Amino acid sequence: MSTSIESVSARVHDAVAAYAQALDAGRIGDLADLFWPDGVAEIAGIGTFEGQEAIREGYASFVPTQPQLHLVANTVVTSWTEDEATAVSNLAFFQRGDSGWAVQLVGRYDDTLRRQNDEWRFQRRVTTFQP
């Protein structure tokens, strides 16, 4: 089966967007399902979660208590094969408080995604923050 960069890029963008949507809605189970069973989520200054159950438990402390929004932009597929892709994205995290929406942090995602059959999931997601 031949996989084009356009097809890979579309699937990577879908996974990146699904992650942000699930995180902002507090759907931690859906977020963990975006990773392979042996997937890894590494968040600078917070921790590394290995495996879906650890990801589910680790992200449970991130369930929103007020409206929030992760804006992810400039996603670029940096390398790809038929079964694996790496990508980098910029992110800005907003929360809504009494005075409206405010940027809480900016950062970057460095991703490795793997494909099995027609399903692309995160193998590793590294989140870093900009000072």
Rank of each mutant, 00 (worst) to 15 (best):
Val77Gln: 11
Gln68Asn: 12
Thr3Asn: 09
Asp33Gln: 14
Glu53Trp: 02
Asp118Met: 03
Ala25Glu: 15
Pro67Ala: 10
Asp111Gln: 04
Gln130Cys: 03
Leu69Gln: 15
Glu57Pro: 00
Ser99Ala: 14
Ile5Gly: 12
Thr65Leu: 07
Ile5Ala: 15
Glu6Ile: 01
Gly107Met: 05
Phe35Glu: 12
Ala25Met: 06
Gly51Val: 01
Arg124Leu: 07
Leu91Lys: 03
Leu113Asp: 08
Tyr109Arg: 05
Arg115Gln: 08
Glu57Gly: 02
Pro37Tyr: 11
Pro37Cys: 11
Trp80Met: 11
Pro64Ile: 02
Val77Phe: 13
Asp38Gly: 06
Val103Pro: 00
Arg27Glu: 15
Gly58Asn: 06
Ala32Lys: 07
Gln52Gly: 05
Val103Ala: 15
Phe93Trp: 12
Asn74His: 08
Val8His: 08
Gln116Gly: 04
Gly97Trp: 07
Thr127Gly: 13
Val76His: 14
Ala20Trp: 04
Ile55Arg: 11
Gly39Ile: 01
Val106Trp: 07
Ala102Phe: 03
Val103Phe: 03
Gly51Pro: 02
Ala73Glu: 11
Glu57Phe: 02
Phe129Asp: 13
Ala41Trp: 14
Leu71Arg: 14
Arg121Glu: 07
Glu50Cys: 04
Gln95His: 07
Phe93Gly: 06
Thr112Cys: 09
Phe129Trp: 10
Val72Ile: 15
Gly51Ile: 01
Thr128Cys: 06
Glu50Ala: 14
Gly97Ile: 01
Glu42Ser: 15
Pro131His: 13
Asp111Asn: 08
Leu23His: 13
Thr128Ile: 02
Gln68Ala: 12
Thr128His: 05
Ser89Arg: 03
Asp111Ala: 05
Pro37Arg: 12
Asp14Val: 00
Trp101Ala: 06
Phe122Gln: 07
Val77Lys: 11
Gln95Thr: 09
Gln104Val: 01
Thr75Tyr: 12
Thr75Trp: 10
Asn90Leu: 10
Asp38Leu: 03
Gly39Ala: 12
Ala44Leu: 05
Phe129Gly: 04
Gly97Gln: 09
Pro64Ala: 08
Ile55Phe: 09
Ser61Ile: 05
Ala60Cys: 03
Ala54Asn: 10
Leu91Gly: 04
Leu105Thr: 06
Asn74Ser: 13
Glu84Trp: 01
Gln66Leu: 07
Ala15Gln: 14
Glu82Thr: 04
Ala20Thr: 09
Val76Lys: 12
Ala60Pro: 01
Trp120Asp: 06
His70Gly: 05
Glu84Ala: 14
Gly51Asp: 13
Thr65Pro: 00
Phe94Ser: 09
Thr86Leu: 09
Ser61His: 08
Trp36Arg: 09
Gly51Leu: 06
Leu69Lys: 13
Asp33Gly: 14
Asp118Pro: 00
Ile55Val: 08
Gln116His: 10
Val103Ile: 15
